[in-house]
Amino acid sequence: MTPLLQVENIAKMYGARIGCANVSFDLYPGEVMGIVGESGSGKSTLLNCLAGHLQPDAGAVCFDTRTEGLRNTVTMSEPERRMLSRTDWAFVHQHARDGLRMNVSAGGNVGERLMAVNARHYGDIRAKAIDWLGRVEISADRIDDRPTVFSGGMQQRLQIARNLVTGPRLVFMDEPTGGLDVSVQARLLDLLRGLVREMGLSAIIVTHDLAVVRLLADRLMVMKDGHVIESGLTDQVLDDPQHAYTQLLVSSVLQV
């Protein structure tokens, strides 16, 4: 099987400081990978390099495109990369307002991504928007409301609908459940797991919440000071951590 994403020696410096360095991994179709580490460990920098939001200083991010097979997205032209991020890629931001257009209706937010891939029939677009609002449990009568009048959890679900409506194959998520209360988090986790399974999505999820990765991710990478210090199956890394820092991280989680 060909990997969907092949990452080789990605590095990003901020002046003399390391953002992230020497990161390599393969991600296969249908796999969900978690990236954990404390604030400043480089996990968001890495995610942004992978998703094309930041230009890495070294390394390659090769994506298995539908038409041309593996392509290095770092050296691809900007329009090509933009096309990817509108079609086969999706990015779910921690703060829904970074991923939504706050002054456009919920239906418009979902429909906009469809129009970006050349959907033109208004009725189809609206029907698809209603379908997706339903899937993320937002009732159809809220379709004309703006996200500004939605709760935090609803905004996050709308952002997910907006991102997944075009049927992407790879989803990048930056703390998708951060800042939400626990019951809303559980609902979102359930939703994400169902979507990953039904759509055969691959995903890379950055979080500092170990409970979230245990439930969502098949594989796990632990980052510290810009480097990946440990990786493996999620339950193996959490139950039998090898590195001193991972042991500290796992043993520091408060039990409820």
Binding site: G232, L233, D235, Q236, D239, D240, Q242
Partner: peptide, 9 residues
């Protein structure tokens, strides 16, 4: 048992 399952290295 956990070693066989790959849960422990």
């Amino acid at each position: 048992m956990r070693m066989i399952y790959g849960n422990y290295l």
